[in-house]
């Protein structure tokens, strides 16, 4: 092979920024909202106990706590919603991109030729909603592994299939 070292036009490189991200399955939003509601339902139970036992004999405290609960609940729901809207993934020819997070926004990119393997897992809740979690492992340890929750099961399988093929073809850089 002839040695080539032509200059790379950096401005013409494919940009991660321009990618259109795929949203997660709408059912996942439901799961998130239900999970948040369950958590806050739990807190409400705690509040009810507090209300009837009334240890401090200060009624305003009880109602104040309920108001705080309401505010936090609303905030939690809004956060869950935003989390859903912010999260997305994109498959490109040579890598997978994943963005997530509301307060801390993260975009992670893993090239196929650096992936070790990928797997799909489903918990009981995901099962009930027809969802699945896709995990991609690299040699970079847990901080660089990718985990996309809330994919439709069929879609997760398709992606896994695609990635597995790519990993096999890319030779893994090992």
């Amino acid at each position: 092979m002839i040695f080539e070292n032509s200059q790379i036009p950096v401005s013409e490189l494919p940009k991660v920024e321009d990618v259109e991200y795929q949203q997660l399955a709408p059912a996942y939003r439901t799961v998130e909202l239900v999970a948040t509601s369950l958590l806050f339902g739990f807190f409400l139970l705690g509040w009810l106990v507090f209300f009837f036992v009334n240890p401090f004999r200060m009624p305003w405290l009880n109602w104040g706590l309920l108001a705080v609960w309401g505010l936090l609940f609303a905030f939690g729901l809004r956060n869950a919603n935003r989390r859903f809207r912010m999260e997305g993934y994109a498959l490109r020819e040579h890598d997978i991109l994943h963005k997530h997070g509301v307060w801390w926004r993260t975009v992670t990119a893993i090239p196929f030729n650096r992936m070790q393997h990928c797997e799909i897992s489903r918990g009981p809740v995901e099962n009930a909603f027809g969802l699945a979690t896709l995990r991609v492992y690299t040699a970079g340890g847990s901080s660089s592994d990718l985990s996309i929750e809330g994919l439709l099961f069929e879609e997760a399988q398709r992606i896994k299939e695609f990635i597995t093929q790519k990993i096999g073809g890319a030779g893994n850089g090992l």
Partner: peptide
């Protein structure tokens, strides 16, 4: 040698147009 590339922005960093770039190696 890089395994994965991540860009992370906190709420403050986003307002300032800044980001942390993380290069994960093995």
């Amino acid at each position: 040698k890089v395994q994965a590339v991540g860009i992370r922005q906190s709420w403050f960093a986003r307002r300032a147009g800044l980001a942390n770039l993380t290069l994960h190696t093995a």
